[in-house]
Amino acid sequence: MNFSFNRFGYLLKLQLAVNRKLYLLGIASIAGILLGFMFFLSYVSEFGYESQEFVFATGLILSSAVFSSTIFRQFARTDDRIMAMMLPASAAERLAVALLLAIVFYPFVFILICIPCTLLVNYINLHWNRYESGFYLPVNATALYAFLLNICIQSLVLLGAIWFRRHVFVKSAVAVCLLVFAVVLVNNGSARTMINKSRTAEFYQRDTLYNFDSAVPYYSINLQAHTKVADGMYNIGHYYHVALRPAVQIPFLLIPALILVLLWCVTWMKIREQQL
């Protein structure tokens, strides 16, 4: 793999300089949208801690996806494409710049936009509406999950950005939704198959509904047994969370991380294979 840190630096500088107007405009629009949405939430309900957490996580993922879908925009138009492809930089350097911008640089910028917006709305709520709420800082477990999920989604969007030439965001969003849907189906389906294969005859009780939700095969599974009360009505019943022992959880968690590496490899290959 051909990689030079010097060229990586030049490429990063070039990407930021060429798109600086777009990025500044984007920052202003995101700040505007966030403020608008936060004021709307505080108007219809209370802009409490959970609402702030929700706005941060969804805002981060959605706006990151929009940003990531523009990273390879120089490959979209033929005239830009020729100039971009003839620039002496390797596919690895281009991918590294894209990843740095999408999963490090942009989330950092988003934090810098979101925190002042949240502060402002909280301040106004406190002084005008006399509503006091906790101030959300993205340092808890939810924020960590949001960042991790963001890395996965942005990796997919980057692949879409190089794969598709037009309507990149829409096509990438559809691809992400399809993939999430497929993962959920495969997870639950494979979990159900595994449980059904290894169950004993006495395991099942009559008039009991069994669910295998939130299943991550070979890692953890939620087993739910709902007892029938009447036709179509079930008690919440028992709920079991079965997971691997902590000592072996990490290796199994690393397997989904390999999917990320695979996505980056495919993106790298697509950049290498680009033709006019």
């Binding site: 051909n2 060429v18 020729i82 002496p88």
Partner: peptide, 22 residues
Amino acid sequence: KREPSFLQQIYLLPEVFRLPDM
């Protein structure tokens, strides 16, 4: 293969182009 060392030694002036705003 479009290696950077190759692209440093070849320059294509395209018929249609768009220069950045700078």
